[in-house]
């Protein structure tokens, strides 16, 4: 019926469509398989919060056989009114949020200084900054502890040893990351802004920050997660249960001598990571929207 030319054309089209479908199926298969591997532990953990010790150690089935709410009941324990999980989480975020804000501000300033300007001693200072990445924190803990003790900051109710350093861009990871992203931003826009009469500060806020938004959001997320997960810092610097953050609270009942109920520990862990999951879920679109707002396109 149809002539050969249209036939071959439609065949090519069909081929293309088939290819598309195959690649689509492939893509989703990969995503779903990987997703299962990624999520299984969380699912298992949710199930385990409803199991007793015996079942947790003897079964890998995420669905509890004899579901019990004991874990959640025990998780609500308040240690004589001194502290409970909600208070502990409030404690956590009462220093994590300032830490995130301070880290972002100080890191952006530092990254801008290193990334866009040349000055005397630039390379030397840059090397010094990078070097801060290379020494494991654990050997710095003792000298730092002695230092903070001299400042009188141990046991500070404002978490000074945790919060104050973030005012001064002590997180090299983030400075370095922002510099790398900054270097991928063409200088044209800034030059244009400069011609329009913007000073450096205005350029930073109006041009650079929007361009860097995806990176800034990533930094904020990471700082949020890492600080929320920090155990050693609070353990060394906080010494009143009423000020304990969630990481310490979660482990309060883990006494290897007397034994303990894992369902409680897991329930507490789960509750304490929920904000992190929610924050990530809510913030992720910033990677996308940050870009369109910055107007890289075009």
């Amino acid at each position: 019926m149809a002539n050969t030319q249209t036939k071959s054309l439609s065949q090519a089209e069909a081929n293309l469509r088939r290819q598309r479908i195959i690649s689509l199926v492939l893509r989703y298969t990969v995503l779903i398989v990987v997703g299962v591997i990624m999520l299984y532990p969380l699912v298992w953990m949710v199930g385990a919060t409803f199991k007793n010790n015996n079942e947790i150690f003897t079964s890998m089935n995420p669905i509890p056989f004899n579901p019990t709410l004991d874990g959640y009941k025990a998780a609500m324990e308040n240690y004589g009114g001194a502290i409970n999980i909600w208070k502990a989480m409030l404690n956590t975020y009462s220093y994590v949020i300032p830490e995130v804000i301070f880290t972002i501000i100080s890191s952006v300033l530092t990254a801008y200084g290193f990334g866009r300007f040349k000055f005397k001693g630039h390379d030397l200072l840059f090397s010094a900054m990078m070097a801060m990445l290379f020494l494991p924190q654990v050997v710095l803990n003792v000298p730092q502890y002695i230092m903070f003790n001299n400042f009188g900051w141990i046991g500070s109710r404002l978490y000074l040893p945790l919060v104050v350093p973030t005012l001064f861009a002590t997180e090299t990871y983030f400075i370095f990351m922002l510099i790398q992203f900054l270097r991928n931003v063409p200088k044209d826009l800034e030059e244009a802004a400069s011609i329009d009469g913007c000073n450096v500060m205005q350029t930073l806020i109006q041009i650079i920050v929007p361009m860097l938004m995806p990176a800034i959001v990533s930094c904020a997320l990471f700082k949020f997660m890492w600080s929320s997960n920090d155990f050693m810092g609070p353990l060394l610097y906080v010494n009143t249960p009423a000020k304990y953050p969630a990481t310490i609270f979660v482990k309060l009942s883990m006494d290897s001598d007397a034994g303990f109920n894992w369902n409680k520990i897991l329930a507490l862990s789960l509750i304490s990571i929920l904000p992190s999951i929610i924050v990530f879920f809510a913030a992720q679109n910033q990677f996308v929207e940050g870009i369109s707002a910055g107007g890289v396109k075009g």
């Binding site: 002695i146 003790n149 141990i154 353990l235 010494n239 482990k251």
Partner: peptide, 23 residues
């Protein structure tokens, strides 16, 4: 009485540092 209590993990280290620092 101001109390401070916790789990065993790294508890000894935290206290040892306190003893060392004199607090």
């Amino acid at each position: 009485v101001e109390v401070n209590f916790g789990a065993w993990t790294d508890w000894e280290t935290a206290r040892a540092l306190e003893y060392q620092a004199g607090n």
